[in-house]
Nucleic acid binder design. Structure first.
Lengths: 192, 192
DNA sequence: ACCTGAACACCGTTCAAGT
DNA sequence: ACCTGAACACCGTTCAAGT
């Protein structure tokens, strides 16, 4: 394993154990066993290292969506499955989730990160399209409906990760919110 | 204006002009004209100062929702109006929005901040309930539906503020996303 | 009561120098 | 090519001391 990859792995590990603020370049370097500024020989700065972590996870999510779409499940089951995987990732790795989907400084990097994020979106959109083609979801533009579902589920996961989802707010869990959303969308009329 | 309030105002101003990372206690103190650690005489730490900013804005949002509900608009118009105000706040003050709705370290403070956040949710829920009572929105539990709408709109605003809403993703704007969401929910059957 | 100044233990980042 | 050590300009936070 090259130093390059070890730095990314160490950053991801620190992210999981202590949140974004725990990912200092000094701590990452120490975990890998190099000097505190060796990371600068591999990444332009701290943001670039975090972006590298994000790219790996976006690629992982993309592959998961591709696998789900390849199954023999019916379209709506694929959608529910994909959303379940997505929510599980947000629940199990809240700090990574926030890095990928809710960090403006990382998103501003563009380039490879933006491309990786777009690929995962495109794969998810393909699942939504299957649902629309089987008339299970409303006949509105695919990209608009995908965007709305994507944003809604992101909102549920983000509120939960941010500790703002309380029973008083009607959202006992992300899973319940997703079920309600999908249930309401599937009940839609408008079958062409 | 007491030092207390001037510190909050200066923090909010720095938040607007330079984002969260620009709100250092030293910069806040300097803007107010006190020594770099005078803020500690008014707030326990940096998080507590940011929480004070958040509480003020939650209260402002709550009052806006109350005003909207007092108008003579029909329920669905009140809902659209409330969401429009909410989205405008997120668009015009992205850093503040993130502080209120997407910052786990601030949310963890609990206490007055959590109470202020809950009050704004309760007022928004009342507007949703009016829509349900007039059978314009589905007859599911009010708090669950409110939570879902709240989370969905949060997701749209957050993705936009995070620079992740691109035309390729179907979400040209928060307003379009809200229109699609509300449109789909209003088309729901299930009138009791 | 409210504020100040020095100090501590951190940061990210840069730079000259080593192998 | 890759790494190290010292250094710089920041931070949040604490503490003793001033008015």
């Amino acid at each position: 394993m090259k130093t390059n990859e070890r730095l990314i792995a160490a950053a991801a590990s620190l992210l999981d154990s202590g949140g974004e603020s725990a990912v200092t370049l000094r701590a990452v370097a120490h975990a890998v066993g190099v000097s505190h500024n060796a990371p600068y020989k591999h990444f332009e700065n701290r943001s670039a290292l975090l972006a590298a972590v994000a790219i790996e996870d976006f690629t992982m999510l993309t592959n998961t969506f591709i696998e789900v779409r390849r199954t023999r499940l019916k379209p709506t089951s694929k959608l529910k499955k994909a959303l379940k995987v997505f929510a599980a990732y947000g629940h199990d790795y809240p700090a990574r989730y926030r890095l990928l989907f809710s960090d403006p400084y990382i998103a501003a990097q563009g380039g490879n990160l933006e491309a990786a994020a777009l690929r995962s979106f495109v794969e998810f959109a393909a699942i939504v399209q299957e649902c629309q083609q089987s008339a299970a979801l409303p006949q509105v533009p695919n990209v608009a409906l995908t965007g709305l579902i994507y944003a809604s589920v992101h909102g549920l996961i983000d509120l939960n990760a941010g500790g703002r989802m309380r029973k008083e707010k009607g959202l006992a869990s992300v899973a319940e919110g997703i079920d309600l959303l999908v249930g309401l969308l599937l009940r839609q009329p408008g079958i062409s």
